[in-house]
C-alpha cells in the first residue's frame, strides 16, 4: 500500500449559518489521479482552500504526508492553482515565476524548463496583464510545477477557456500524470474527470456522496440501444430474455438495460437465429455524467 499524501478527517467549514463542507473524510494516495466532482457551490474550492491553508477550518483536521510535515512545510512540496490564475499584472512571466521561486525556496534555473512544458517560452518576457486567459492558466500550471511537486492540485483548470485552451491544458495534465505526479482535480466537468482521473470524490452541498475508483462507480453492466424493422417481435424477445431488465422505447429506439453481462456479438447471433434482423445495435455503459446526475439529483 502506497503512503497517503493527504488524509482528511471529518473536515467541516461553516460560513455563518451555511455549512460549506460537512464532515468530509477521504484519503489521497501517491501516484493516483483524483477528481473532486460536484455542482457549483458544493464545497470543492472550500475543501481545497482548507488543505492549502487559506481557509480556516471550523472543525476536523487534515494531515499532509502522513503527518510527517506541518502544513507550512508540506505546502512547499505541493503545487496548486485555484480557480483563476493570480499573478502580479505588471511583472513578466519570468519575474512572476522568480517571485514564486523565492517563496518556494527553489532555484530560478527551473523557470525556463517549466515554461517550456506549458509552451510559454517564446512569451516569457511579456507582462502578465497582456496574456490571454489560456496563457495565464498555463503560466499558473508552470508556477505550480516549479518545485517539482509530489502532488498537483488543480481547481477548475479549464474554466472559461476556449476548446483549444481546454485541450491544451488537458494534454499538459495528462503528460504530468504520466510522470507519476499525484493529481487532485476539482471540476464540475464530468468528461474531464472521466478522461483523466482514476479515483473520484463526489460532493453535494458539502456532503460526500461517493468516493472510490471511477470504474467501480459505474457499477451497472450497461445497456443496448436497438432498432429493428420487426419492432414488436424484438420487444417480445427482449421481454422474454433473462439478461434484460428495464426496457425503454423512444421514437422506435429501444433502450434495454442489462442485468447480467452480455456480449453484443452473442446477443446479435441469438436474435439472428430467431429471424430478428437489427438495423441498429449499440452497446454502451452509462457515462459518469449519467451516474453523477443520478447521485446528485435523487437525494
Amino acid at each position: 500500500m502506497e503512503a497517503p499524501i493527504l488524509t482528511i478527517n471529518n473536515l467541516t467549514k461553516k460560513f455563518g449559518p451555511i455549512t460549506a463542507v460537512n464532515n468530509l473524510s477521504f484519503t489521497i494516495n501517491k501516484g493516483e489521479i483524483y477528481g473532486i466532482l460536484g455542482p457549483n457551490g458544493s464545497g470543492k474550492s472550500t475543501t481545497l482552500g482548507m488543505v492549502l491553508n487559506v481557509v480556516n477550518t471550523t472543525s476536523g483536521h487534515f494531515k499532509w504526508f502522513n503527518g510527517t510535515l506541518n502544513t507550512h512545510d508540506a505546502l512547499r512540496k505541493v503545487g496548486a492553482i485555484i480557480e483563476r490564475p493570480n499573478f502580479y499584472p505588471y511583472m513578466t512571466a519570468v519575474e512572476n515565476l522568480k517571485l514564486v521561486c523565492t517563496i518556494k525556496h527553489v532555484h530560478a534555473s527551473k523557470i525556463e524548463e517549466k515554461l517550456d512544458i506549458v509552451g510559454l517560452l517564446d512569451r516569457k518576457n511579456s507582462t502578465f496583464r497582456n496574456y490571454s486567459l489560456g496563457m495565464k492558466q498555463r503560466l499558473a500550471i508552470a508556477s505550480a510545477l516549479l518545485n517539482d511537486p509530489e502532488i498537483l492540485i488543480l481547481d477548475e483548470p479549464t474554466n472559461g477557456l476556449d476548446p483549444q485552451g481546454i485541450h491544451h491544458i488537458r494534454e499538459i495534465i495528462k503528460r504530468i500524470a504520466k510522470q507519476g505526479t499525484t493529481i487532485l482535480l476539482a471540476s464540475h466537468l464530468l468528461d474531464e474527470v472521466e478522461k483523466i482521473c482514476t479515483h473520484v470524490v463526489i460532493l453535494r452541498k458539502g456532503i460526500k456522496l461517493y468516493s472510490g475508483r471511477v470504474d467501480e462507480m459505474i457499477s451497472s453492466h450497461g445497456f443496448f440501444e436497438l432498432k429493428s424493422n420487426t419492432h414488436d417481435l424484438l420487444m417480445q424477445e427482449l421481454k422474454a430474455h433473462p439478461a434484460f431488465g428495464k426496457l425503454k422505447v423512444h421514437n422506435g429506439l429501444i433502450t434495454a438495460f442489462l442485468n447480467t453481462p452480455l456480449a453484443a456479438d452473442v446477443f446479435n447471433k441469438q436474435l439472428f437465429e430467431k429471424h430478428i434482423i437489427l438495423t441498429h445495435l449499440v452497446q454502451r455503459k452509462e457515462s459518469l455524467e449519467e451516474q453523477f446526475l443520478q447521485l446528485t439529483d435523487t437525494k
Binding site: N53, V54, L75, V78, I81, N86, I103
Partner: peptide, 13 residues
C-alpha cells in the same frame, strides 16, 4: 490582484 491568496498557496505563511 488576489496574489495574497496565491502567495499563501505557494507556501508563504
Amino acid at each position: 490582484n488576489k496574489t495574497l491568496k496565491q502567495n499563501l498557496i505557494d507556501g508563504l505563511s
